[in-house]
Design a protein around this nucleic acid. Structure first.
Lengths: 233, 233
DNA sequence: CGTACCGTTGAGCAGGCTCAACCGCTGTGG
DNA sequence: CCACAGCGGTTGAGCCTGCTCAACGGTACG
């Protein structure tokens, strides 16, 4: 059943992401939606396509990207478990979406979802908090990409992925091994860098003994050093 | 009374911004809120301050910005009539806000607003659409700032301001005179450029006979040329 | 009239982009 | 079984453009 993850607008005392939705609400969503499982690299929808569904991830990683007139590809966001995706405008998706890992999500028909939200005001409020959360995250990403130096951007990216990693760890700061299921090219398209720059930035972080990279895993060697580099924006 | 402006998620047939909120809903908001008028440059709230209010602009321009540890200042957004601002996380504002022009807004107490939204599901839906709209705009801004060339960024900025300008013109593309009430420094902090680069970019747009700048007004000389420069991202 | 602020312009520097070569791995077809 | 192409990734050389530092002009205000 679908879940949602969001930091609340108002203070709730705990600084952990609040798990939204009651069991009853999750059941209602599961009832109107369809559970779908897809293999890696599978396209989910294309920009300008009719936006008939909103998607709620339960497992895996999805990328949301946009192809620009020039042919450049920008990745707006990576989506994880308990995230929503399927942003649209005037009935058409503004981005394309594609599975990165094997992914499981609930496919929710928009019109029925809207009716459900209008009937269940508490659940609609959870969705409002979720979208508000995404707006904050988008601002944070904008600040990250604002940095001039590639190493700093990549450092922030690793920290961001660490925050999204399995929350089984008691504290996000204790996470040392960060899975990076996306390719270098995806990271570049997300950070607004060339993929060569990402590669060089990774080499620099290793040279500075902050993070090591192997395959699709980043290992944080010096959390304090990484944090101070991130704070230097 | 407050209004909201948003492009809907679903197709409504018209591509104009849909004016949200019924008269009754606007009255309800005016009842719980306070109408406030401020002179230019007046601070409204500070980042990390207790987030007790959400604001709905009826007239004027506001900037929402963030001071980074390094001392750099980033402008996340400019807000216009029929915009909401006051984004918070865990009960504290994530940005600071300051009036640019003389501004009038409704100051809505968050807790009462939430209660009102939970009671009036249709109005809550309008707010959900508004935040969704802002999320799309944030993605669009991210793409704008992604550009390498300063002239292209400034061109997109002028087009963005034209879209926000008085919608008295029948078509946004017909707007030639675009007020830019913010300083060059504000534009630079918004676009992620140095203010010298903004100045040089303005000079280049004038040299290319696309836009002329005087005081706080941009005059679009060659709309087609400007559009093609913008599309070249 | 001096000061402060906004804005413009110039010189030199630095960091990221482009183009290009190269490595290792994988899947394919002769 | 091997040759080859394709893809992801790394590294190097040189260029380009935006940043920094600096000087200067115009305007508003005490």
């Amino acid at each position: 059943m679908p879940r949602l993850r969001a930091v609340p607008y108002l203070d709730t005392g705990s600084d952990r992401d609040t798990v939204l939705l009651t069991d009853r609400q999750r059941e209602a969503l599961a009832t109107i939606g369809t559970r779908v499982r897809l293999p890696p690299r599978m396209p989910i929808y294309r920009q300008q396509g009719a936006a008939n569904w909103v998607f709620a991830i339960t497992e895996g990683v999805v990328k949301s990207y946009r192809d620009l007139p020039s042919g450049k590809r920008v990745i707006s966001n990576f989506l994880f478990a308990r995230d929503l995706f399927g942003l649209a405008e005037n009935g058409v998706y503004v981005n394309s979406a594609q599975a990165i890992t094997r992914v499981t999500f609930y496919r929710l028909p928009v019109r029925e979802l809207i009716q459900l939200l209008k009937r269940d005001s508490e659940m609609q409020f959870q969705f409002l908090m979720k979208v508000t959360h995404e707006l904050r995250e988008a601002q944070r990403r904008a600040i990250m990409v604002n940095r001039r130096d590639a190493a700093g951007r990549l450092a922030m990216f690793v920290a961001l992925m660490a925050a999204h990693a399995d929350t089984t760890a008691a504290d996000a700061h204790d996470i040392r091994d960060v899975p990076l299921p996306m390719t270098r090219s995806d990271i570049a398209a997300f950070l607004g860098l060339s993929l060569e720059s990402v590669s060089r930035a990774a080499a620099e972080l290793e040279r500075r003994a902050l993070v090591t990279f192997e395959h699709h895993l980043a290992h944080i060697v010096d959390p304090a050093g990484l944090t101070s580099l991130i704070a230097a924006l």
